[in-house]
Design a protein around this nucleic acid. Structure first.
Length: 137
DNA sequence: GCCAACGTTGGC
DNA sequence: GCCAACGTTGGC
């Protein structure tokens, strides 16, 4: 099982929007970046990911599950772009802020810290476990 | 609202 | 194939 992180501006697509989609989930569409697309191609059914709010909140607010592997992005005719489908699994009881992540030396290598602009990222097993703990899970 | 980082585009 | 110009993202 691999772990990932999905970044979104709450004003565009928030955790609440994701939760509202329920078990049916939703396409993680609109990604127009090769690196992020390549990360999504690595995802397998059942993998878990953090849902991160960028800009205003800057915190990990929930956990999602991959329910469909990479397929063409329905929001474009350009065959270069693909996306996965994800559904909300559960909220993080105590959202983990970017500040808290930066304050933790064990998380200094996170893509979230080192490559802030990448919108879909891999998360290591140890990073996943630690953030879950910090979030009260 | 500003600015740094970075990805993409297009001219040569 | 290189590089300058430009656009976008996201933290502060």
């Amino acid at each position: 099982m691999a772990y990932w992180l999905f970044k979104s501006e709450p004003s565009t697509w928030s955790w609440d929007d994701q939760v509202a989609k329920g078990a049916a989930g939703e396409e993680w569409d609109g990604v127009r970046n090769y690196q992020a697309r390549n990360v999504m191609r690595e995802m397998k059914l059942g993998d878990l990911g953090f849902f991160y709010h960028s800009q205003k909140d800057k915190e990990v607010v929930g956990i999602v599950e991959v329910i469909a592997e990479a397929h063409p992005d329905s929001t474009t005719d350009d065959p270069r772009w693909e996306c996965v489908d994800i559904k909300a699994v559960q909220p993080v009881p105590e959202p983990v802020t970017l500040a808290a992540i930066k304050a933790e030396p064990k998380l200094a290598e996170m893509v979230l810290v080192k490559n802030t602009r990448l919108s879909v990222q891999p998360v290591r097993d140890d990073e996943w476990a630690l953030i879950c703990k910090m979030g009260g899970l």
